[in-house]
Simulated assay, not measured.
Amino acid sequence: MQEQLFSEKLSHIKNIIIVLSGKGGVGKSTVSCQLALTLANMKYKVGILDVDICGPSVPGILGVSNKEIVQSQDELKCMSIGFLLKNKDDAVIWRGPKKNSMIKQFIQDVCWKELDFLIIDTPPGTSDEHITLAELLRDFKNINSIIVTTPQNVSTIDVSREINFCKKLNIPIRGIIENMSGYVCPCCKEITFIFGSGGGQKLSNEYNIPFLGSIPIEPELANAEDNGINYIKNFSNSVTSMQFTNIVNIILN
Rank of each mutant, 00 (worst) to 15 (best):
N164K: 15
G175W: 06
K189Q: 15
G228H: 05
D139G: 11
F193R: 02
I177M: 00
C185T: 06
L133W: 08
P151H: 07
T156W: 09
S236I: 14
N230I: 12
G213D: 00
I191S: 01
P172V: 13
G125T: 08
I232K: 00
T126D: 08
I146N: 03
L137I: 13
I157S: 06
N144I: 12
V184R: 03
S160Y: 07
Y183M: 11
H130Y: 10
H130Q: 12
I173C: 04
N230V: 13
S214K: 08
S145L: 01
P210A: 06
F195N: 14
I157R: 07
L133H: 04
I217A: 07
P123C: 11
I177P: 00
A224P: 00
I131P: 07
F235G: 08
T122L: 13
N237H: 14
T149H: 03
G196Q: 10
V184L: 09
D139Y: 14
F211R: 00
V159S: 06
P216N: 09
Y231H: 08
L137P: 01
I229T: 11
L221G: 03
F211Y: 11
P186W: 05
A134L: 09
G213A: 04
A222W: 05
I157V: 15
E178L: 00
G213S: 06
P172T: 11
L133V: 11
N153P: 06
T126K: 10
N164W: 08
Y183T: 09
R138T: 15
K167H: 14
L137W: 10
P216A: 00
C187L: 15
I157Q: 07
T150E: 02
T132Y: 03
E135P: 02
D158M: 10
N227H: 14
I229K: 04
Y207N: 06
D139M: 12
V159M: 10
K168F: 14
I143V: 15
G125V: 05
S155D: 02
I229M: 05
G182I: 03
N144V: 12
C166H: 01
T126C: 04
K167N: 15
I217E: 11
T156A: 07
G213W: 00
E129R: 08
Q152C: 04
S214F: 04
D158G: 09
G125K: 05
N144C: 13
N179M: 02
I229L: 08
M180I: 00
P124S: 09
H130L: 03
N170A: 13
N142Q: 14
T149G: 05
G196L: 06
G125E: 06
P216G: 02
N223E: 15
I146R: 04
I194E: 09
L169P: 01
D139N: 15
N237L: 09
N179R: 06
E135C: 07
I215N: 01
K233F: 10
N205A: 12
I176D: 03
G175S: 08
G200E: 01
D226G: 09
I209T: 04
D128T: 01
L137M: 11
R161K: 15
G125W: 05
P219C: 11
E129F: 07
K189Y: 13
E225M: 15
T126I: 10
T132V: 14
F140V: 13
I215H: 00
K141R: 14
